[in-house]
């Protein structure tokens, strides 16, 4: 009995398909129009003949579909179609475009994957990295074992380290602020030349901002002003150099050495306005004093005279 019904359903579906295709053929015949090779009378007659044949086949198919449809009765009891029946129970199926949303989600995730791959390739080309560890691929997964904790040091330890450094550099006046939580922000005055704000994460240097002595370190509401850039070109240039120094002196496994080297480099800026460039021996180039200090020997150079 079940196979009968299945058989009947299959045959009626086939009949519907043939009907659809014959109707399509008729309309296609209409669309193509008349052929060019025969003479006028023959052309018209052949066209009309073909149309007639097509419509006759349509009629035939339609009759078959009706016959089969009348034989099929509605099923008596509930259909045993399992879970797939539950899909048809949703009354607002038209309003929840499940299929199209699924398609969109799939396409989007594919795109994200592609773009991330491209970004990784491009960013990998940058050789100025904070760490020498591999950041992608199988090697990265192998190195997840040794976790560095130097960004989570307790504040007393950081204060102690900074105090020892203060004694080594008499020209640097270091003040420690903690505007939010335990991360320290240092306000360092370098001799009579400039003021620099250093944001620390544990003992690792995060960012720096260099300003002049007469520019305010605090905003009007009393908070420490970290991000306002200097209004003088000299200090903007030195801020860029200081960011380069941050990357140069980055040593995650010995942050105290990194900190001390950075402060030594910073200490060389007490002579910002007083020393001429080591290469061209003038004070000004492009109206700026020698703002670059070599990392190894601390000699002053103009930005354009750098070796």
């Amino acid at each position: 009995m079940a196979t009968d019904i299945q058989d009947l359903l299959a045959r009626s579906l086939l009949a519907v398909r043939t009907l659809r295709s014959s109707v399509n053929q008729v309309f296609e015949r209409f669309r193509n129009g008349m052929k060019e090779d025969n003479s006028n009378e023959n052309k018209e007659r052949s066209f009309l003949n073909e149309l007639q044949q097509g419509l006759l086949s349509v009629n035939q198919n339609l009759g078959e579909v009706e016959k089969l449809g009348s034989v099929i009765t509605a099923p008596a009891g509930p259909l045993l179609s399992g879970n797939s029946a539950l899909l048809s129970l949703d009354p607002v199926l038209d309003k929840t475009p499940l299929h199209s949303q699924l398609l969109q989600a799939y396409k989007w995730s594919n795109k994200v994957h592609d773009v991330a791959n491209h970004a990784f390739v491009l960013l990998n080309q940058n050789s100025l990295k904070r760490s020498t560890l591999p950041s992608g691929g199988p090697a990265a997964k192998r190195l997840r074992t040794a976790q560095q904790n130097f960004h989570k040091l307790p504040p007393q330890q950081i204060d102690a380290v900074i105090d020892t450094q203060k004694r080594m550099f008499p020209d640097l006046d270091i003040k420690i602020h903690r505007p939010q939580g335990t991360a320290a922000v240092l306000e360092v005055t370098v001799g009579r030349a400039m003021k620099i704000i250093i944001v620390l994460r544990g003992l690792i240097l995060e960012t720096v901002n260099v300003r002049g002595l007469d520019e305010q370190s605090f905003k009007d509401n009393g908070e420490l002003d970290i991000w306002t850039k200097s209004k003088y070109l000299v200090y903007l240039k030195i801020t860029e150099h200081a960011c380069a120094a941050l990357l140069h002196f980055y040593m995650p496994h010995r942050p105290d050495i990194a900190f001390r080297s950075f402060l030594t480099w910073l200490n060389s800026y007490t002579s910002l306005f007083t020393i001429p460039c080591a290469k061209c021996e003038t004070y000004l180039q492009d109206n700026l004093p020698p703002t670059w200090r070599e990392f190894r020997n601390l000699k002053p150079y103009h930005e354009g005279c750098r070796p």
Partner: peptide
Amino acid sequence: PCMVPGDCWD
């Protein structure tokens, strides 16, 4: 930028 004449006279 400078505030001390001795430093930046040259």
